[in-house]
Design a protein around this nucleic acid. Structure first.
Length: 469
DNA sequence: CTATGGCACGGATT
DNA sequence: AATCCGTGCCATAG
């Protein structure tokens, strides 16, 4: 049983339905691969360089978005403008690499780890360093670790070791963080370095990794404590942190849904699927929501192919026909994906507008089911659309789309604020009282859970000074 | 005795 | 149907 969408595009066949669902749950990057794969194997599908604005159907200039899109609702600054934004090269910060759009020759099928990483870092690399990066990336083992020595690379390219090191350090900071390290140890250290930018790292974490890997892997905590001259408690903290936040084998966190608690640095390196900004970057203007279509041009069924099929010899007719159907199915499904995403974001952004503008503590309680009712689609449709997508906010941060549906993110943000402003460490029950004053009624036990989620230590281990937010 | 984490239960969400 | 989340109860550490 499924609900029929209430508009012109309705799923007619089970194939259509199935493909709509898979496309919907894809990220922009995965969608790009899908399209490229189909494009290179299916002659019935073509891409034309013309771009039309999906909302007003006007022809767009070769670069940039449709300035006219705002026309229908330009005077209503409460309602966001949502549109599909076709782009070949999309980077998280549009102001950075605009002039040198990276030209990457891409293997047509399935983005393996090397390709995935290479795409991320290509803009950061000097032209002449790219072959080095490519060389290194092809020598990754199954765990995402480097299986070639620096010196070997140096000899291969006849360059200074420092240059190789430099390229490698860029690779290691790409997602999945730590790829291209030469040992699990090194990978962990890189991850810590990045996480330290906006998270608290427990004492002894680094020491454990540097000197106690063997004991760590055997869970000999007391011996670790002894060796490092620390209390077992602190060691426990650190070990827990390591197992919850770090990953010695970078490739394993790769495609598997990054199920980390929100706002960890790891996600910063993913490209967003949706970009929210103010119109013309002016805070007084309404919000503009771009849903990224990772292709430059318009995808359509080749009209010549459609005509030619009549004259083709009967032998090949079946093959041609199936190509044609596949092509038109893909086009339809993509349209439908866009349509759903557009309507979804329209709702979400207008509901969570305050949170987007003012910060996460103003997030409203929102469930996928609620949206599903309003849009008259099945709950699972929304689920798929929301999962594994990321949004870039006006302030440049990239967060998972699901955080707009996070029941407790607002409360956790307030909790973090309270703790970062505290003059002396407060116990969980004290915090619970303060939270209640702020309008967040939560049990003491829940405060403890939130703390854990945010990686904040309990009161008696907390230092009053210097707590990085 | 207080603060905190583990376990498990029930209701909501997906 | 499976999973997630807030909460209460209890054990344990300090």
């Amino acid at each position: 049983m499924f609900q029929i969408q209430s508009h012109a595009l309705r799923p007619l066949t089970t194939a259509h339905l199935a493909q709509t669902m898979t496309l919907l749950s894809m990220t922009a990057d995965e969608l790009r691969q899908e399209i490229e794969a189909e494009l290179s194997t299916n002659p019935a599908l073509e891409m034309v360089e013309e771009r039309r604005c999906p909302t007003c159907n006007r022809l767009l200039p070769p670069h940039g978005s449709c300035p006219m899109c705002s026309c229908p609702k330009s005077d209503d600054s409460e309602e966001p403008i949502v549109f599909i934004s076709p782009r070949e090269d999309f980077t998280p910060r549009s102001d950075r690499y605009e002039d040198n759009a990276p030209e990457i020759d891409q293997p047509a099928m399935g983005a393996d780890l090397p390709t995935y990483v290479f795409r991320q870092i290509a803009p950061e690399l000097a032209e002449e360093d790219r072959p080095i990066a490519a060389f290194l990336l092809t020598r990754l083992d199954n765990d995402g670790l480097l299986s070639v020595g620096i010196d070997e690379t140096v000899r291969y390219f006849h360059v200074l070791p420092s240059r190789v090191e430099n390229v490698l350090s860029i690779i290691k900071r790409a997602n999945p963080v730590g790829v291209g390290s030469r040992s699990p140890q090194e990978a962990l250290l890189v991850q810590i370095e990045l996480l330290a930018e906006n998270k608290y790292i427990p004492d002894f974490t680094v020491e454990i990794i540097m000197n106690g890997m063997d004991k760590l892997s055997r869970h000999q905590l007391t011996e670790l404590a002894h060796q490092l001259n620390a209390s077992t408690r602190k060691i426990q903290e650190a070990v827990r942190f390591i197992s919850e936040n770090l990953n010695p084998f970078p490739s394993r966190s790769h495609w598997g849904d990054v199920r980390l608690p929100s706002r960890t640095a790891v996600q910063v390196y993913r490209q967003p699927d949706i970009i929210i900004n103010y119109l013309n970057n002016d805070v007084n203007n309404p919000l503009v929501v771009e849903i990224i279509m990772p292709v430059y041009g318009t995808l359509r069924v080749n009209p010549l192919f459609r005509q030619a099929i009549r004259q083709v010899e009967p032998k090949k007719k079946d093959a041609w026909r199936s190509d044609l159907e596949k092509a038109s199915l893909l086009v339809k499904c993509i349209q439908q994906r866009n349509h759903t995403m557009q309507r979804l974001m329209q709702r979400v952004v207008s509901i969570q507008r305050v949170a987007i503008v003012q910060g996460e503590r103003y997030l409203r309680q929102l469930t996928r089911a609620e949206i599903a009712v309003k849009l008259e689609v099945h709950e699972s449709t929304i689920s798929r659309a929301v999962s594994s997508k990321t949004v870039q906010l006006p302030n440049g941060r990239i967060v998972p789309l699901s955080s707009f549906f996070d029941r407790s993110l607002n409360a956790r943000t307030v909790l973090c604020e309270l703790i970062s402003e505290e003059s002396k460490p407060m116990s969980d029950s004290e915090l619970a009282k303060l939270m209640a004053k702020e309008g967040f009624q939560v049990a003491r036990r829940t405060v403890a859970k939130y703390r854990a989620m945010e990686g904040i230590l309990p009161a008696h281990l907390r230092n009053t000074v210097s707590y990085p937010v």
